[in-house]
Amino acid sequence: MSEENTKKPVADPAKEEAPAPVDPRIEKATQALTLIQDKITSQFGEAAIEEAGLKQFVPTFVIKNELYAEVAEFLKTEPSLLFNYPQAMAGTDYKDYIEVYFLVHSTEKGYDVAIKARGERDNGSVPTLSGVYPYCGWEEREIYDLLGLNFRNHPDMRRILLQDEWNGHPLRKDYVVRD
């Protein structure tokens, strides 16, 4: 079951040297990737997508910070895409930036897409998606609470899991646990 070359997340199956059988999941996912990528670039221009790839059979795009909310709206309303069911939202603290990951599923078409946006570590901000998907309201509050990333135009930006007076953002890599 586990062939080594089918496991790489951002590999192009056609470029492998040995004639290994292509994993049908990667083929299907690559088709979805090119379809969505074309749609987004035709609507917003080439600069909208900073990185594109397959992460474990899920087309993943890093979207430019300013266009994040518009791209999400487009993905939801475009008749051939119809991504309407949010599945997950997460924030990760990398060394230079904080990244927001948002996975959304299309109940009509049956595939997922993940869009990411990056914000600065100090006073960075990312546009909110809660206007498009109400699901993001509390998830973004949690990312703000634990990582310190602000969300522009969020209706209710305050801490959700920790006390309002808490100092610092615990999920950051440089957070020191004080007692």
Partner: peptide, 29 residues
């Protein structure tokens, strides 16, 4: 980066793992 969900009792419990290849996750959401 990986995401997988199961049908837990109250809904879909999903785990999002960002891994650097080590034995501990870089981020587990």
């Amino acid at each position: 980066e990986y995401y997988a969900g199961v049908e837990a009792m109250r809904g879909e419990l999903g785990v999002y793992i960002v891994s650097e290849g080590k034995d501990k996750p870089y981020r587990l959401k």
